[in-house]
């Protein structure tokens, strides 16, 4: 064994040991040598999902772990002891070098004050695995659990617990179910039936059909006036044109009033959809909408013809005087057959 190899061996051991402690430091195993304080809470519900080692968070900041879970002799109260890392709490002043200066007494005072201001413990789900953690948070309004902590000898600062979200949820679901049970389904259904009957009678009344017929005949007359316009001659252009405009105005006013009537009709029928008479209503509605469809189709056609006329006049104003020309149709030569 030469001196050189002894040196090598020594160096190797030193490096390995240094790396070992650096690794421990990075993985944070020296945490356990830091100063700690303890906080206790009591639960009167199942702590399923909570285990020794579960994390404890103060307003979401991980500050410690659950150290012990035990059951009191009465069998209904579970005691949870939590270990809190003091390093997570800043000292009195907010100075940067005062980070770790909180003492155990100071921490206990602070917890006592915080409990007065509404600090409570509550179990929360951690992820989707069903494991839980304990959240310390301010919730002065929520009703604290009905455990009298003075019955149990607790030497650590005591933080009252709140029922967990799950038990909260369970309570809420129960009350919602009770409310649902008290609803008068029969009455609602009867009223809905009445409403539908009214709607049905209105839609099937002759007045409604009449309105629609009126609209139809109006459109027909509008079309006629436009056809008349095409036959215009030089002599009576001016008068006819004026006449046409007046007719169109009347037609538009009629369409407007139709729309209003329909609107009123529909408004006066209170829609509320429930089972039995829906089929009948729909049948009427389908019929009505078909008639409406026809009407609209006619209106559309009339408007189209009007547009065509206006375009024609626009492209050839003399036609008002000369009458309509015959359209020339060009037929393209289809080329030699079987060319392919």
């Amino acid at each position: 064994m030469t001196d050189n190899s002894k040196f090598k061996l020594g160096l190797f051991i030193i490096i390995a040991v240094v790396v070992f402690f650096a690794g421990l430091m990075i993985l944070g195993s020296f945490e356990q040598f830091k100063e700690k304080a303890y906080v206790t809470t009591l639960f009167s519900e199942s702590v399923q999902g909570l285990s020794v080692g579960s994390s404890v968070k103060y307003m979401g900041v991980p500050v410690g772990t659950v150290r012990d879970i035990s059951i009191y002799p009465n069998g209904s109260v579970i005691r949870i002891d939590m270990e809190i890392k003091l390093a997570s709490f800043r000292g009195k002043t907010a100075a940067p070098d005062d980070v770790n200066s909180i003492t155990v007494e100071e921490f206990q005072n602070r917890i006592a004050q915080a409990v007065d201001r509404g600090l409570r413990c509550r179990m929360e789900l951690e992820g989707i695995t069903g494991s839980k953690y304990i959240e310390l948070n301010y919730d002065p309004e929520a009703p604290a659990s009905a455990i009298d902590a003075s019955q149990y000898a607790i030497d650590n600062p005591y933080v009252p617990s709140l029922p967990s979200l799950i038990s909260d949820l369970r309570g809420s679901v129960t009350s919602i179910l009770a409310k649902l049970e008290s609803i008068d389904y029969k009455g609602i259904s009867d009223r809905a039936n009445d409403t539908l009957d009214t709607l049905n009678s209105r839609l099937s009344s002759p007045k409604f059909d009449e309105t629609l017929d009126n609209a139809n005949s109006m459109i027909t007359s509008a079309r006629k006036s436009i056809e008349n316009l095409e036959k215009l001659t030089d002599a009576d252009v001016r008068g006819q044109l004026e006449n046409l405009t007046a007719n169109a105005k009347v037609a538009i006013a009629a369409v407007e009033s139709l729309a209003k009537t329909v609107e009123q009709e529909i408004k006066s029928a209170e829609f509320e959809q429930i089972a039995d008479n829906v089929r009948a209503v729909l049948a009427n509605a389908v019929r009505a909408s078909r008639t409406l469809d026809e009407t609209l189709f006619n209106v559309n056609n009339g408007v189209d013809a009007l547009i065509e006329l206006i375009q024609y006049i626009d492209s050839d104003p003399s036609s008002i005087i000369q009458g309509k020309k015959k359209r020339r149709i060009d037929i393209e030569d289809p080329g030699p057959a079987g060319g392919r």
Partner: peptide
């Protein structure tokens, strides 16, 4: 010592 050197460094 010899084997330490052999196995380690």
């Amino acid at each position: 010592l010899f084997y330490m050197n052999n196995c380690g460094p």
